[in-house]
Design a protein around this nucleic acid. Structure first.
Length: 207
DNA sequence: CCTGGGATTTTCT
DNA sequence: GAAAATCCCAGGA
């Protein structure tokens, strides 16, 4: 078993786009009750600055979006389509709105609990493993991430944080850049290649 | 393979 | 009152 080390404050102080690439291959750890869930981040998406029409922050600072304007290393979690939560990592300095959406994860441990948390009210005998955490809404459901973790500090939190295996390295060749998903309304910003994912990874939400 | 619709509720106009 | 950084399922080619 390889050794995982929590990522320090300094990790989150990188430029948003560098950070989005460097988040690939890192581990998301979630602890609740007596459970520990662990998954590898395989897909990320940047929302950057006050002008990005795809970003919640493009319409200014509000009660919901204020965390995007906060210090780096916090969790920004919101409800989408009235049904699913999305997990973001706040980036950039205070008062500059930016965040990275965690779009997909490869489950590493705690799969049984993840499947339980994902149980959908439709008659279905088994959930294929590739559908367990392959999307922003799905991974939040699997990891029991909801509004109660909004604003959680990933640098100090006992419930939610990121870790790295220092022996593992992701090379630029393994990373694919692509357009963001579900933001067709964003004008010229819809064509920005601000989504990053690990090529050939089965758990990426969309190629 | 693809397209379209329904679920469900917070947020902002 | 409309839109939304989603997901799942049904139906057609």
């Amino acid at each position: 078993m390889s050794k995982l080390k929590r990522l320090p404050a300094k990790f989150y102080q990188q430029d948003t786009f560098a950070l989005a690439e460097n988040l690939l291959g890192k581990y998301l750890i979630r602890k609740y009750n007596n459970h520990i869930l662990n998954g590898k981040i395989v897909e990320t998406e940047c929302y950057y600055g006050p002008n990005d029409l795809a970003s919640h922050a493009s319409r200014g600072k509000t009660e919901r979006t204020k965390l995007m304007f906060a210090q780096p290393g916090l969790a920004y979690i919101y409800l989408i389509y009235g049904m699913y939560y999305c997990l973001n990592i706040v980036t950039e300095h205070k008062n500059f709105p930016a965040a990275i959406l965690i779009r997909a994860i490869e489950p590493i441990s705690g799969l049984k609990q993840m499947a339980k948390n994902r149980q959908i009210p439709v008659a279905q005998n088994s959930l294929p493993i590739t559908k367990l955490t392959s999307g922003p809404g799905k991974l939040c459901q699997a990891f029991k991430i909801n509004k109660s973790l909004n604003g959680e500090n990933l640098i100090t939190s006992k419930k939610l944080y990121l870790a790295t295996n220092t022996q593992e390295k992701i090379t630029p060749k393994q990373i694919k850049k692509a357009k963001r998903i579900g933001i067709d309304y964003a004008g010229q910003y819809k064509n920005k290649l601000w989504r990053y994912y690990l090529k050939d990874n089965l758990f990426v939400s969309q190629k």
